[in-house]
Amino acid sequence: MKAFLKHREIWLLAAIVVLIGLISTRFPAFADPGNLRQVFNDTSILMILALGQMVIILTRSIDLSMASNLCFTGMVVAMLNAAHPAIPIPLLIVIALAVGLVLGAINGLLVWRLNIPSIVVTLGTLTIYRGATFVLSGGAWVNADKMSPEFIGFQRAAFLGIPVLSWIAILVIGLFFVVMTRTALGRSIYAIGVNPTASVYAGIDVGRTKFLVFCISGMIGGLCGYLWISRYVIASVEVANGYELNIIAACVIGGISIAGGIGSVGGAVLGALFLGIISNALPVINISPFWQMAISGSAIILAVVLNARGERQQGRIILRKAEAA
């Protein structure tokens, strides 16, 4: 199983290398380390979000409210910054994490305590959180000129030659890697996805763990709220509208099975990078950006076809045989 998982990520990595190779035949400077660092930085937010979504999908749930959470939390920190520029940025990040945590916990409680399917809960909170952003801001935007220089500059500051935003992404990736592979929580997340019934008998509190993963994805959404707003320097109700599906797309391309239990930190990161490379490459190789949506759609379908073939080898689908008989 482990060897198999490694296998899948190596293939994805190979696909990314081939993609970069193909792009650099048209535009040689693309494969330049400096440019690749830039692509990584551009994709950081998507990578972090994909990791938050990954833990959810691993437990057979789904969180459609992440982008709305991002939008709401982003508005909260932007308005706080506009009103009280003296609040230090680290404290603002803690506030963003806390606001995101609360929004995630609401999802988690509804899933855990009332046993409502996560897709229904987050479909509801998707619209509620975005609507709440409108109520909070009164429909107004927070523009760059209202934000303090520190608010905008924090993630752009270079540390060891790499922007802070990239460092945050690296930190989050490392953190998720440790949690998913080296802690009991990580193992129970996988266990629930593979077999919830067996997990109960193994002493795992399935409901509580699901609550926790929604808290995690909420915090991730909150963190990215600050990162997104300070990167694109505008806070409005329209921020990241529809982005929840991009996040899920990154996970799917990264080989995370929507049926739960299969997927890894590396996969989620590579899946996000794949989408990031495409969106960065299209303008430089003179393809209209309008192609991007169709290309990522095709990539998703291709990825899910390939992944399904991998999963079938494990004999997960019993019905196939019955159909053939």
Partner: peptide, 19 residues
């Protein structure tokens, strides 16, 4: 192909609107 519909239709959603 026996694929999960939620993922397939996220993909075709991008494909159709992308077209």
């Amino acid at each position: 192909l026996g694929l999960p519909s939620i993922v397939v239709t996220i993909g075709t959603m991008s494909l159709f609107r992308g077209t």
